[in-house]
């Protein structure tokens, strides 16, 4: 979503993005002329008149589980966004019985919070795992 019109979205997709992604952008390119939606989400920069790089993870209940906001010159890491979605999906599937330690990636160990884990995380989770 940006403050551009759908006409400009079409031009950008057809003339540039479709050369990067076969078939063009697969998801809807939303238009927020005037920045009303961006203002509600708190990422509209009124002085510049543009939206900053805000990214929101919304779960199936419509609840915002996480967000990240960057200023315009730095791009996002899509893999990190997907990793976070996978982590939230795992937590949801476990109905909150599992927690995702720092540095987790799909397939790696999770934590099962409970009285016996208090003070014992050091036995199952090592600091280097934060940087895996």
């Amino acid at each position: 979503m940006s403050i551009d019109s759908v006409f400009v979205h079409k031009m950008w997709n057809d003339h540039e993005l479709s050369k990067m992604v076969r078939g063009g952008v697969p998801f809807p390119m939303l238009s927020d002329t005037g920045g009303k939606v961006g203002s509600i989400y708190g990422i509209y920069d009124e002085n510049a008149g543009v939206e900053t790089r805000g990214r929101f993870i919304i779960d199936p209940d419509g609840i915002i589980q996480g967000y990240e906001v960057l200023t315009p010159p730095v791009g996002r890491n899509v893999s990190e966004s997907l990793r976070q979605v996978q982590a939230f999906q795992l937590v949801r599937k476990s109905k909150g019985t599992e927690a995702i330690p720092s540095g987790w990636r799909p397939g790696k160990m999770t934590l099962k919070p409970g009285p016996e884990l208090v003070g014992n995380v050091w036995k199952v989770w090592k600091t280097k795992m934060a940087f895996d």
């Binding site: 809807p28 238009s31 989400y41 990214r55 993870i57 919304i58 199936p60 419509g62 315009p72 966004s81």
Partner: peptide, 27 residues
Amino acid sequence: AYHKGKFVNLQLSEYFGKWILLCFYPG
């Protein structure tokens, strides 16, 4: 929105029930 060659009107809540990544960008 512009989506796969068409101009469409859509509503965020139509996508509730799925996981959504809502991304804003400067332009």
